[in-house]
Amino acid sequence: MHRTNVYLIFNLCCVIIYNVMIYGQDAVKTETLNRQSPIPLYYQLKEILRSWITSGKFDSDGCFPPERKLQERYGISRMTVRRALAELVNEGFLIREQGRGSFVVKTRMQEQLRHLTSFTEDTEQRGLSSEAKVLDFQITVDTEVAEEMGISEDEELIRLQRIRMVEGEPLALQTSFIRHNLCPGLVEQGLLGESLYKTLEAGYGLRLGRARQTFEAKPADEYEAGLLGIDVGQSVLVLERLTYLHNGTPIEYVRSTYRGDRYRFTVELLR
């Protein structure tokens, strides 16, 4: 069911991109519904309501307009309103409480993908407090990770798995693999200020240079859901990063699973 919702959202995104190209940005930015547009009415309404939330029109945990008010304002059926609200719930913008209505969830953390930074550095730049709960920190061998890094399959790696928390709330599950021969003694010495990158640079004199990242959306499995405090099947964002030193040597492979309702990434494209 959840996998179907992911595919449906992806297909609708394709529709909206196509219509923006054909009809212009006003096709989705206007606060009125265009009944002549091939874009479904519920999707148009969802985009309007989503813009209200992201622009700060409603405070976090603030009560959202009831279905009847939205139905009257836009002259549409209650079924259309309910579908739009359901989509916003699935995307993590709203929560619905029986007998009380819909409420805006907390603002998502947003990361600008411009520079190679750590989770700790990102939160510090925002003036937020972060902490990490270490689940696993040991020397191991992983043939699949070694293949991703382009190194010998029997080379020793340090496996570091942590729950990353911001303001006391779990936001991500992060599993890093670091080449042991480039930072011997890391497991015994621990991290400087809970930051892996700070430890590699200040503790070992390694100069980080660049990274390659990939993203995908998927439903959370039972293990991820339990650690992040979300429902099984809830949407999460998976980031895989391969980090290189300044001289081109691969140093780290990390797989991070972010809560889709609390995190989003922004990429600036230039032409």
Rank of each mutant, 00 (worst) to 15 (best):
F58D: 02
F58K: 10
D59K: 14
D61K: 11
D61M: 02
G62D: 12
F64S: 01
P66S: 03
P66Y: 03
K69N: 11
L70H: 05
Q71H: 04
E72D: 12
Y74E: 07
Y74N: 10
I76F: 04
S77P: 00
R83N: 13
R83T: 13
L85Q: 07
L85P: 10
A86Y: 06
A86C: 12
A86M: 12
V89P: 06
V89T: 14
G92Q: 09
F93E: 09
I95F: 08
Q98C: 07
G101E: 07
F103V: 02
F103P: 01
V105L: 15
T107K: 05
E111C: 01
R114N: 10
L116H: 03
T117K: 09
T117I: 11
S118D: 08
F119N: 11
F119P: 02
T120P: 03
T120W: 02
T120I: 14
D122K: 04
T123S: 07
T123Q: 14
T123P: 00
E124H: 03
Q125L: 06
L128S: 06
L128P: 01
A132I: 03
K133Y: 00
V134T: 15
V134S: 05
D136R: 09
T140Y: 00
D142V: 03
D142T: 05
V145Q: 03
E147D: 13
E148Q: 09
M149G: 10
D154T: 08
E156I: 03
R159F: 02
L160P: 01
